[in-house]
Amino acid sequence: MRPRYNYSAITFLHPLVGDTSQADVKIFIVARLSTTDYHTTISPELLEAFITKSEGLFLWAETVLNHIDNTFNHAAELADIIAGASLYWTATETAAGKLEKLYEHILSKLEWGNHRFAEKYTIIMGALVTLREPLSRRGLAELYAPDGVTEDDVHQMCMRIHPLLQSYSKDDSSRPIRLLHLSVQEYLAQRAPPPFRIDYEVHNRRLVKLTLLAIRRELTPEKVPILGHSDGDWVWDVAEKEPSIPVLLRASLPEQLWYSIEYFDTHWRSLKEEADEEQTTLLCEIVVDNPRPLLEIVVSTRSMIDIALFQRKALPCGSLSLALARWRAKIYISLARCLEYAKRQADALPLLQEAVKLYAPHKDKGLDSTVELEFSTCMTWLGN
């Protein structure tokens, strides 16, 4: 009788990729195969050839097993992979080279003759390669909804490419989707041939647009009730107590909104070419036309953004009218005072400095007493 292994109880003290013993790899492979319903079709000779060909590379072995789980003839596919390795993977090739040959083999089995599949592959795999942090299939679908992507699209794609994913769950739509290993991302973005190749710059530009769209769409008082917490005329009264900054945890926001707030600036900074008109218009709507919601939610997640930098990117030239300068300075001062009250002086300082800069071009133009008071209040807070 074939021995059974408690696969879930086996742990290894080494990474999936690296120099490890053949004995450990053998334990891993046998235990993993014992959980399948096709393990009896793998002959002892084929099993031994598989173990030998793995050369102690756990990630290679795991990727092969994930792949053959979903093939029609498991033993034949395993034999093909091993035979392919003998043709393409010489003794001098690196582990990365072996993995990339395997990734190419897996991808070559996909439905490239179906243009709808190819289109969704480009979008969804492009997202998995380019995102700075993994999203669930629900969050990914919501973020990419403007591109016509549905949750079912994401699920169907993940089922097809799941050998290249870490433990994809068809039953849990909230589990983050992660590529199997950094080597998958590097292969797809740098060395994969068409049609597998993912153009990182194209997809990063796409994410700039999608994150800005998500912020514009989702960042509303109806969906985020804490918005507006810093507003009010209290800001110019030094005797008034500052309102406390509400604390927003990641789980309290829609996943696509949290990601967009956290990473839209990172994607923007990664652009290799100038932003296009659509991206600049979206940025202007968010950081120029009404910057308070973005600033409020950013400080509520205990992070910060260089709002002035992005305002200059959206509107790079010219000073503001006095009315617009006062309106924007009030936003900055209100958030800065809230941050000071929360003992986040380092985050408050740039906002105070920007508020003073907004008044500076107008200070010698005969300001009325109200505006002079606002300017002096800005200077006072900056000096404290």
Score class of each variant (00 low, 15 high):
L164H: 06
A189D: 12
E133S: 14
L212G: 14
Q156F: 10
K223C: 01
Q156V: 03
I245A: 03
I226M: 15
L143N: 06
N204R: 12
R132H: 15
N204Y: 04
L140S: 14
S136T: 04
D199E: 15
I198A: 10
D233H: 03
R206H: 11
S244Y: 01
R217C: 07
E218C: 05
E186P: 02
L164R: 03
R178P: 02
E133M: 08
L212T: 09
T150R: 14
Q185D: 13
E242S: 15
A189Y: 03
G232N: 03
L212Y: 07
A214K: 13
R132E: 14
R138C: 14
S183M: 10
L219I: 04
L165S: 00
Y144H: 15
T150S: 11
E186T: 11
H203R: 14
Q190P: 10
G148N: 12
Q166R: 06
P225L: 02
P246D: 02
R217H: 10
H155M: 01
L165N: 00
E242N: 12
H155I: 01
V224K: 01
G139Y: 09
M157T: 07
D171P: 01
A141G: 15
P246V: 01
G228A: 04
D152P: 05
M157A: 04
P221M: 09
I226E: 07
V224D: 01
L212Q: 12
S183C: 08
N204G: 12
G148E: 07
I215A: 06
T220C: 03
S136F: 05
S173Y: 09
H181G: 13
P246K: 01
S173N: 11
E142G: 11
P176R: 07
L140Y: 08
R197Q: 15
I245H: 01
Y144P: 06
H181W: 14
S230C: 02
R197F: 10
A214Q: 10
I245L: 03
R205M: 14
I177P: 00
A145C: 04
R216H: 09
P163H: 13
E218P: 00
R178Y: 06
R178V: 09
L210V: 06
V238S: 07
Y187M: 04
L165F: 00
V224S: 01
E151N: 05
V208M: 14
V235N: 00
L182Q: 15
A214Y: 06
S174A: 13
E133G: 13
I215N: 08
H181C: 10
T150Y: 08
Q166M: 05
L213A: 04
K170H: 04
L188H: 07
D233N: 08
L140N: 14
P134Y: 12
V154H: 03
R197S: 12
T211A: 11
K209H: 11
L210Q: 15
P195S: 10
I161P: 11
P243K: 01
D171M: 02
S230I: 00
M159W: 00
P194Y: 11
H229N: 00
E133L: 09
Y200K: 12
L143A: 13
P146C: 03
D233F: 02
E218W: 04
L212A: 13
V149L: 08
L180Y: 08
P221V: 06
V235L: 00
R205E: 12
L179M: 07
D237S: 04
P225N: 02
R250C: 05
Q166L: 09
L180M: 15
A239Q: 09
L140C: 11
L207D: 15
D237Q: 08
V208W: 14
L219C: 06
